[in-house]
Design a protein around this nucleic acid. Sequence first.
DNA 1: CGCGACGTTGATTTGCCTCAACGATTGTGG
DNA 2: CCACAATCGTTGAGGCAAATCAACGTCGCG
Lengths: 198, 198
Amino acid sequence: MIDAASIFQKLRAFFERSMPITDEQFELVKTLFSARKVKKGHLLLHEGDMTKVDIFVASGCLRTYTIDNNGKEHIIQFSIENWWTGDLSVSGNAPAQCFIEALEDSEILVAESNSIEKLIKFVPEMGSFYRAALQRSAAAKNERIVSSLSKTAEERYDDFLKKYPSVIQRVPQHMIASYLGISPETLSRIRKQRSRRR
Amino acid sequence: MIDAASIFQKLRAFFERSMPITDEQFELVKTLFSARKVKKGHLLLHEGDMTKVDIFVASGCLRTYTIDNNGKEHIIQFSIENWWTGDLSVSGNAPAQCFIEALEDSEILVAESNSIEKLIKFVPEMGSFYRAALQRSAAAKNERIVSSLSKTAEERYDDFLKKYPSVIQRVPQHMIASYLGISPETLSRIRKQRSRRR
DNA sequence: CGCGACGTTGATTTGCCTCAACGATTGTGG
DNA sequence: CCACAATCGTTGAGGCAAATCAACGTCGCG
């Protein structure tokens, strides 16, 4: 057992930024999430078992990625403090395995997806909260799709800079490249040009 | 008023494929959705007003698209009978306006997004149903992101063929190209090669 | 009928990838 | 504490997939 208290405290603060929570309700939350510390470089795997999980990042930084048929990694998202992530895998047919790796020593809370459903049954306001989050995430994904289809490598890098300035500082460059879908070499050249241009 | 009855009937059938619905519950549904017929080529706009809507397609075919800064259209999704679509726009900062156009004469049901929340309040099982749908959609979007970042134009076309064979027959080729993020010319060449290859 | 939308084909250009080699930094074990 | 390996970013050369530009045939529709 780790000192889960401070970790849960962050989750509570996160909730209370958008909705009030009673102590009683939060006790329930505690039974559904389990606190974990993950060392930099370690994986959170759910290989065989198909249980999907939701993860709240209390501190540190994670990356979620898949491996395509050519064995190449593709980063789906980075998650830092106060972000959610999940192992979303599977859309129906192709298992499309997802991996989650800690890029820094991190503190996280993990819940099975059906735990979230349980939680919502007891705290219905949580339902709309959760749906709102899913919708925001959907909108963001749409933007990313359009941008990956229509923008140049440099434009995508610009967007990333604007959108996730805090991530840049903490994540190795070649992973940013992977997220953007460009080669590390190309990203390096882009950065060079930009710095010269100023 | 149009003959909404048959349109609502399709929505009910759609629901009942995954969950039972009482007559009473469905009466509520009827108050929240409004039935519309849209002629081919017409737009469903929500320009000024920022109300987000959810749309159920009872018959016909729609496309949802944005226009980027260079004035180029990008198709986000096609929706045919028994699919949902929405005007998802906005992720927080960039308005990124979305348009929805009928590609065929279509029958649809429209609800404001907060109507859906109302509905869920009265039929809580609908909540998990809706969340599950959002999650499937998120997984699909992730796949599309990865595939747009890692696959060649031809591979993406193959995937599309497998995934949406019914759409191909009904939608002009250059729109498929737009969805896939390739130029119409390239798609034409790809199709030529494939047909030669068999 | 004639116009416009759509698809096809060719020629040229280009953005980005791949391959390869090389410093710099980190960290690991002797 | 130093040597060596591994990881990471940078730079160069060459190649390829797909975009762009342009012209043309066909079909459906007002």
